[in-house]
Design a protein around this nucleic acid. Sequence first.
DNA 1: CATAGAGGTTCCAGCAACTGGAAGGTCAAG
DNA 2: CTTGACCTTCCAGTTGCTGGAACCTCTATG
Lengths: 127, 127
Amino acid sequence: MNISDASRDSGLPAKTIRYYEDIGLVKPGRLENGYRDYSDDDLHKLRFLQRSRGLGFSVEDCRVLLSLYEDRNRASADVKQIAKTHLVEIERKIAELQSLQKTLSHLVDACQGDHRPHCPIINDLAG
Amino acid sequence: MNISDASRDSGLPAKTIRYYEDIGLVKPGRLENGYRDYSDDDLHKLRFLQRSRGLGFSVEDCRVLLSLYEDRNRASADVKQIAKTHLVEIERKIAELQSLQKTLSHLVDACQGDHRPHCPIINDLAG
DNA sequence: CATAGAGGTTCCAGCAACTGGAAGGTCAAG
DNA sequence: CTTGACCTTCCAGTTGCTGGAACCTCTATG
C-alpha cells in the first residue's frame, strides 16, 4: 500500500507519515521503484499514532506508547502512568486557560468598544 | 538603564528582551560602549509586553496592541476586537482540552494499572 | 598595573511537530 | 509522446524563545 492510501487509511497527511518515518516511528518497506510500501502492521501503527496524537500525547509519549502497544508483556501500569501524567498536564492547562478566560472576559465586558480611546483593556495591560 | 535592570523591572528575561528588539518591538538607545540603554518609555513597553504575553496574546497581537497603546487616537473598538478574538480562541482551546480530559480520565479510571498487559487505554488507541 | 569576575555584545543552533515548496523520478492513460 | 498524478529527497519556515560560544567592557581588589 502506497503512502497516499496509507494517508487515507490512517487520517494522517502524507507529509506527517514521512516525518514519522524520519524520526523512526513507522518504517515501511520499499518497492523496487523506491516507493514506500505500508504493511497491515504499519497501518495499525499509523492509526495508533493518529489516535494517540489526537488525545494530545507528545510524539515522544507516542513512541513509548507504541512500544507498549507492541509489547505483549507490557504492564498496564506503565501505560496508565503515561496517561495519568498527561491528564494532569491537561488539567493544568485547562486551569491556566480558565484563569486567562476569566480575566479577559471581564476586560472585554468592561470595554465600550467604540471610537473613543479610553480602554480598560489597554489600561490593564499598561499595569 | 541596562538590560539586566530592565529585565528585573519588567519581569522578562534579558534574552527575551533582546529578542523583542530583534523583531522590532522595543528598540532602546545605545551607550557609547554599545550597551543597551532603556528609557522609561521603553520600560513601559516592556512591562506592557510582559502583561499582554501573560494574557496569552501572540507576539503579533502584542505588536498591534502596543501600537494601540501608544496611539492617543485609538478606537477602543480595535482593542476590544483583538481581545474578543483571543478570548474565543481561548474558549475553543478550553473546550478541546476538556474533551480530551473527559476521554482520558475515563480511560485512566478503567485501567487497572497492574503488571498485566490488558489495558483499556491501549485498546482504545488501537481503535 | 594585572587580573578576576560580573556584566555586556553578537551570532548560531535547537526545541515541537509539522508544513510548504522546489526539483526531479515514475507510471498509467489517451 | 505527452500529460498529469503520483512518488522521491531535501531545505526552509513556522512560534517564541532559550542555550551556548566567542568575545568585549567595566569595576574592584591584590
